[in-house]
């Protein structure tokens, strides 16, 4: 049975491979960075299991390793990725292989789709193929492996060439790859430190009395602002709901709960489009697409986010107090 843990081990193996290649090239800091990250991925399940059993020493070591990663990150200078083959060679290869090149690339979404839709029913010799939690992600990992083999077949290239191309892409992305995980951890620390409660208290303090519209506006803007700070609407929602949504809008002004919940969450999503804190959607793609500005993606979606927010707020205002 394929568990999500195997996926993490696979990532760990790849990260450690990248570390080893960097070490051979004399890139000590890079090697240490990817090695630490690889170890965190390999040992993650052990850390979580020990933490659950009441032993927090492995988690503390993991925390110290995260700090070490933060100290190493500034030493990883981002370098544009250098192509190993010339444009002419790639054009010639593109002409020769034609549409066959699309096949492995499309296998990634297709296999993931099959795993997501039918994963629950697939079995080999009576054993279910996928473990139910995180089935789509396990499917994506399987899809990547299948696509890699398909790519070596189509391009008639050895497997290690795929790995070293992957390593070059990862080195080009560099420390930006780490941000989504760090920001998720930061969100957790913020929650535990009561940052949310403090912000809700501040929002309540500036709230004018007796105006349902003003209250709704503070709620909606609060969802955006809090999402911008936390990088995640899911973290903002319970805080804003408990602070303003439930006690004031629903219980005092009689707002419709389903509309308030759904559209309030969507106001938060507009915030996700605006913030570097949502690194996996905004900063990692900028690195992945080799944009010169890390904020290029945010700039491209800024006005979409503002307009979607205004439209959603107007609809919410019209519908929620029916």
């Amino acid at each position: 049975m394929l568990h999500i843990e195997y996926t993490y081990w696979l990532i760990a193996a790849f990260l450690i491979y990248v570390a080893w290649r960097n070490l051979r090239d004399g890139q000590g800091s890079r090697a240490a960075f990817w090695l630490l990250l690889g170890l965190l991925f390999a040992g993650g399940d052990y850390v979580l299991a020990q933490q659950k059993a009441g032993n927090s020493l492995p988690a503390q070591v993991a925390g110290a390793m995260v700090i070490a990663l933060a100290l190493l990150a500034p030493r990883l200078r981002r370098h544009a990725h250098v192509d190993t083959v010339s444009t002419e060679q790639r054009l010639a290869s593109a002409l020769r292989l034609g549409h066959k090149l699309f096949m492995p690339a499309l296998l990634i979404p297709l296999v993931t789709l099959v795993a997501a839709l039918f994963g629950a029913h697939l079995s080999v010799a009576g054993h279910a193929l996928f473990a139910t939690p995180q089935m789509t992600l396990t499917g994506l990992a399987l899809a990547c492996v299948i696509a890699l083999f398909a790519a070596t077949y189509v391009a008639r290239a050895p497997l290690h060439q795929g790995l070293s191309e992957g390593r070059r892409l990862l080195d080009a992305i560099g420390w930006a790859a780490l941000l989504p995980l760090l920001l998720a951890a930061l969100g957790e620390v913020f929650t535990q430190s009561g940052v949310g409660a403090a912000i809700a208290a501040l929002a309540n303090a500036i709230l004018p009395e007796g105006s349902a519209f003003a209250c709704l506006l503070v709620f909606a803007l609060g969802m955006v602002l809090f999402t911008v700070i936390m990088g995640n609407a899911f973290a903002a929602f319970p805080v804003m709901m408990a602070g303003i949504g439930l006690p004031l809008l629903i219980q005092q002004y009689g707002a419709h709960p389903a509309i308030l919940g759904a559209m309030g969450m969507l106001c938060g999503y507009c915030g996700t489009l605006l913030t570097p804190m949502a690194a996996d959607y905004n900063l990692v793609p900028a690195a992945l697409l080799e944009l010169r500005s890390p904020y290029g993606v945010i700039r491209a979606q800024f006005w979409s986010a503002v307009m979607i927010f205004v439209a959603t707020f107007m609809m919410m205002w019209l519908l929620v107090f029916r």
């Binding site: 999500i4 996926t7 993490y8 696979l10 990532i11 790849f14 990260l15 965190l40 991925f41 040992g43 993650g44 850390v47 979580l48 933490q51 927090s56 492995p58 988690a59 503390q60 070591v61 993991a62 925390g63 110290a64 390793m65 995260v66 700090i67 995180q134 992600l137 994506l140 990992a141 990547c144 492996v145 992957g166 990862l170 790859a177 989504p180 995980l181 760090l182 998720a184 951890a185 969100g187 957790e188 620390v189 535990q192 996996d280 990692v284 992945l288």
Partner: peptide
Amino acid sequence: LLGKSFVSSRMLLMFVL
């Protein structure tokens, strides 16, 4: 807390594969 929350969100690095 830092270590636990970091390893709990490992799925965010899936794109590496």
